[in-house]
Amino acid sequence: MRDTGASWSYARLSPDSQIEVAHWSGLPAPGLHAHFHDELQLTLVISGARAFEVEGRVLRAAAGQLVVIPAGCPHASVTVGEADNRCVNVYLRQTACQPRHAAVLALPEGWNAVGPLRIDRLMEAVEHAVPMARPDSHAQGSALAAAVAPDARVADVARRQGMTREAFSRAFTRAMGLPPRDYRTLRRLNEARRQLRGSEPIAEIAAASGFADQSHFGRLFRRTFGTTPARYRQQMR
């Protein structure tokens, strides 16, 4: 992440909502390392532009467009241009179905950037334009992900699968979009992010999530999510 001194601003959609939103306004949104979210991500571009490296291609979205990134789909955001950028990320935990792939769509007709965020209209647009699938339809990838438990050694997992470490790592990367080590780290970061919405001390969350210390956790968290653990917690309360 390019250090501009700015950061993403996170909040709940409403005080009692489980839907999370993140806002960026000002300089072009900074690039972030490859990562994924446990939730479906919808990125609304209000002004400027956004770009993502995802599924082996670059998706570009201009003002008035919507980027759809399925839950668990690795992606890296790319800094675009020099113009000021205003955008909103919405994170939705979907259980019934997920988009089969990432996509760029037009925002729904009549969309009002200053009005209330109509999640139902956004999802109608997504379901109309993007093929949907049940989460269990990606059985191979799910099985590989489950095989890499937080405390498992990749060599041991590979042996149980009847593969060499190198062959397993290649198969895992093809299926999941990330090497096993990176995938495991991001799983831990997503779980820590969920815990930050509670009241447990940040140092204890870092330790329980398997990070060497709070400083190491903080660096990885900001590199991945564009803000610090302390700031994220404060904004999500």
Rank of each mutant, 00 (worst) to 15 (best):
P131D: 02
H37F: 01
S169L: 08
Q235R: 07
G115M: 07
D151M: 10
V157H: 04
V104Y: 10
L44R: 08
L144K: 00
D151L: 12
A133I: 13
L196F: 12
E191I: 05
T185Y: 02
M176R: 15
G31N: 07
Q234F: 12
I46R: 07
A34T: 15
Y183P: 02
S215M: 14
D136Y: 10
A83C: 04
Q18I: 08
A103Y: 09
R181I: 08
A171R: 13
T4K: 02
Q234E: 11
H138L: 11
R170P: 01
P135G: 06
A175F: 00
Q195P: 00
A62W: 00
M132Q: 15
E55I: 03
G72H: 13
P30E: 03
P116S: 14
V80E: 04
S215C: 07
L122N: 01
A63R: 05
T227D: 11
L92T: 06
H75F: 15
H138D: 13
Q65S: 09
L107Y: 01
T227K: 15
Q94F: 08
P70H: 01
S7H: 14
P135S: 04
A129N: 05
S47R: 14
V130L: 10
G31L: 04
S199D: 15
P201C: 08
Q41R: 02
G31W: 03
Q214R: 14
T95I: 12
A63F: 09
I205S: 00
S47P: 01
